[in-house]
Design a binder for these strands. Structure first.
Lengths: 283, 283
DNA sequence: GCTTGACTCTCCAGCCACTGGAGAGAATAA
DNA sequence: TTATTCTCTCCAGTGGCTGGAGAGTCAAGC
């Protein structure tokens, strides 16, 4: 029988943590003195505590640990929990790996160029959620006509008296760069089920996004910069580029102050993530 | 000029988050109406928000992001922050990798053997903190004499009237297994500066630890099981093993209920961690 | 039996970066 | 003038603890 302090120095688990495990019902003391409230632990409980620490060590939450230790649980359930934990870990590992790569690329750029260290960071990798939109897709002869397609979308929405819930988007349904006969979609996010026929823009798991300031004349250069960045950061374009007109003629008068976001779907150049091979045991 | 909701759908950052950034002083609205308290954002702020999101994306805290954006900060400081973030990330990656390996080994064992899925998890990898102890080191002819060495330590401590602050420990200062002439140290954690001469047990960065129940006769088998586990989990022993007598003759009468912990220092077999190579950019 | 000091108790606040909700006021459309 | 949709502020909660305050308890020495 140990008092909490002794049990703590025995197991190298802090007194606070032991009290917390008591409160959570994950490790009740063997006996609690009714008068003083003192907690007394038995030697036999060291095992349970060791298990708790081992499971926590693998990154399970206390709630999960509780289930694994208390529920009269079968091997198959343990396996399921391990499986889901594994895929979680693989995902985390990939994410961390990506962050690390980004940090290291940035460091390299500082070493090499010494320029404004913030300048690069207009660009970020993000997940784009699926979006409900009203849209029109068409093959237009030249770039200029894209705006007219967009305007026709605005007109339809104004006519139907529907609220816009996001910025105008154009999607280029072609992988290569073309000057003529562009297959382009003009889309406007609206709420679903509001009269107009809607469609769903698919999510982009990983998009390289660049926010650009200034008139639309600069957009080709911005696309170029983004393409270069994608190359340098060991990604590969895969999918259709989107342009989001965050502000444009509708909300901003001065074209020099337009704000535009370019989204390019990408995948890591090193898919079949190099760690994945090293990960499986006894490989 | 956008109201918070519009700015939110424009940037895909939630209203709550924008309010939070306001409160934290990391992104103040362009204008706040004095009467209504309504927040109004300008298109120009999209850039700052994009930077915030990009830096957060790399895993920096809001506090750090604030410093990076507000302080008139030099390239060298940015570099330092990136450097420290990088080493942090490398550490995290290694840890996650290890967890993943442990999870996968466990999964494999379930596949192969289908036995009690919890049984393995008496064992965990942990860091052992340095410890201040009173100790005696000696070459003893046989295993049995180890107990006597330990008892002599107990006697010294009792004679000096000093409190013990942890379990008795024996350390085998030899790498190979020997039956005779063991170089062994018996140690007892005590507070520093209490009269007795103390020494410091070094920390163990990574120890495979097994908690064992039962009389000391079973210890050799436990050592064997631990050694096997280490092998299977792709570790390698490196350093001197410790035995912690969590309970023994002092606190427990029944030798069948003794609780003992074995600690074996280990290193990952795959030092020069396989991901490390894949990590550097443009490798 | 009394004092001292070490231990233990409970309860509250804080961490991080938000999310969710309540209740009240403000803006906009019909 | 509603009715609806914003927006505001304030509070609670997340996980897994750590730290601290203030009060009660235990064990040893006198």
């Amino acid at each position: 029988m140990f008092k909490i302090g002794d049990f703590s120095s025995l197991t190298q688990v802090s007194v606070k943590t032991l009290r917390w495990y008591d409160e959570m019902g994950i490790l009740k003391p063997y006996r609690v003195d009714a008068n003083s409230g003192y907690r007394y632990y038995s030697a036999g409980q060291i095992s349970r505590l060791a298990r708790i620490r081992a499971l926590k060590n693998l990154g399970f939450s206390l709630e999960q640990v509780k289930v694994m230790l208390d529920g009269n649980i079968q091997a198959v359930q343990i396996r399921d929990m391990l499986e889901s934990r594994r895929s979680q870990l693989v995902g985390q590992l990939q994410q961390e790996q990506e962050k690390l790569t980004l940090v290291e690329v940035w460091l390299q750029q500082i070493e090499n160029e010494g320029g404004d260290p913030m300048s690069q960071y207009e660009i970020l990798i993000k997940k784009v959620e699926p979006l409900t939109v009203y849209s029109k897709r068409q093959i237009v002869p030249t770039e200029d006509m894209v705006i007219q397609l967009l305007e026709s979308v605005w007109n339809d929405i104004a006519a139907a008296n529907v609220r816009k819930v996001g910025p105008s988007i154009t999607i280029y349904h072609q992988v290569e760069y073309k000057e003529r006969d562009l297959d382009v979609e003009a889309a406007m996010p609206i709420a679903a089920g509001c009269g107009l026929e809607t469609s769903e823009l698919p999510p982009i798991e990983k998009a390289a996004a660049l926010v650009y300031y200034g008139s639309h004349d600069g957009l080709p250069a911005a696309y170029g910069a983004l393409a270069r960045w994608i190359e340098e950061n060991n990604y590969r374009m895969e999918g259709f580029c989107r342009t989001l007109f965050l502000t444009c003629a509708e909300t901003e008068e001065d074209p020099g102050k337009f704000v535009t976001e370019i989204q390019v779907p990408v995948v890591s150049r090193s898919e079949a993530f190099p760690c994945a091979a090293a990960v499986s045991p006894k490989a």
